[in-house]
């Protein structure tokens, strides 16, 4: 039995331990859970050190790029959480992190969730590409009405009554229909992941094990 095949056995058993969760909580699941959490936490600590700290801090500092001392100091402020008397210092690091995230994402969200969506939604209500195109016309009208009604649903400053209420209800119908389509699509993708795992158990574990036992 090769080292690789021992690895396959460990992976297969851990897969079954995790699947045992479908029955109920049990010691096998607990074992796999704790092992997974412990190993992944340790792995990510090493990963962040080698892939974040070293290339983004230590290497620039070695190259005398002393502006990198600013993030170093901000990072060190967070460690002040360990000293209750000076834990207030950590707020500078946190404040920078949160504000930086909000500031960068303001532009990212405005571009991706507003400008590009508007660009894609402003469509001719009668499509005349290569003559009158009924299918494209219906598609364009549905997109314009659907997006407009969806926007009205996310309007918070007025009570959803009367025309506003009806439009908002139409908006939520559009949202739910799109969620339904997305649900079906994603479930299919998840089933393919399950099939992949089953194929691993059958082709990489059960079949070679039977072959090993039978000596063929």
């Amino acid at each position: 039995m090769s080292i690789d095949f021992i690895g396959v056995w460990i992976a297969a058993l851990l897969t079954l331990f995790i699947f045992s969760f479908l029955y109920k909580d049990n010691p096998f699941y607990k074992f796999a859970e704790y092992l997974y959490v412990g190993i992944s936490a340790g792995y990510f600590a090493a990963y962040y050190y080698h892939n974040v700290m070293v290339p983004n801090l230590f290497v620039p500092l070695q190259n005398h790029q002393f502006d990198y001392l600013i993030p170093l100091v901000l990072g060190i402020t967070i460690l002040f959480r360990l000293f209750p008397k000076y834990s207030w210092v950590s707020r500078y690091g946190f404040a920078y992190s949160v504000a930086m995230g909000a500031g960068i994402n303001f532009i990212v969200y405005l571009q991706a969730n507003a400008m590009q969506q508007i660009n894609a939604t402003i469509l001719p209500l009668i499509s005349l590409e290569g003559g009158f195109n009924l299918g494209q016309t219906i598609s364009n009208i549905i997109i314009v009405i659907g997006v407009s009604a969806g926007l009205v649903y996310f309007y918070f400053s007025k009570p959803h009554k009367g025309f506003l209420g009806s439009t908002a209800r139409l908006g939520i119908w559009f949202l739910m229909i799109s969620f339904g389509a997305s649900f079906g699509y994603t479930v299919m993708a998840r089933i393919s992941i399950l099939i992949g795992r089953m194929q691993f158990l059958i082709n990489d574990w059960i079949k070679p094990t039977i072959a090993l036992i039978s000596g063929s």
Partner: peptide
Amino acid sequence: TDDQFGYVAAVDG
């Protein structure tokens, strides 16, 4: 843990 499914396994537990 930072790992997506490791985190899920622990939260489920």
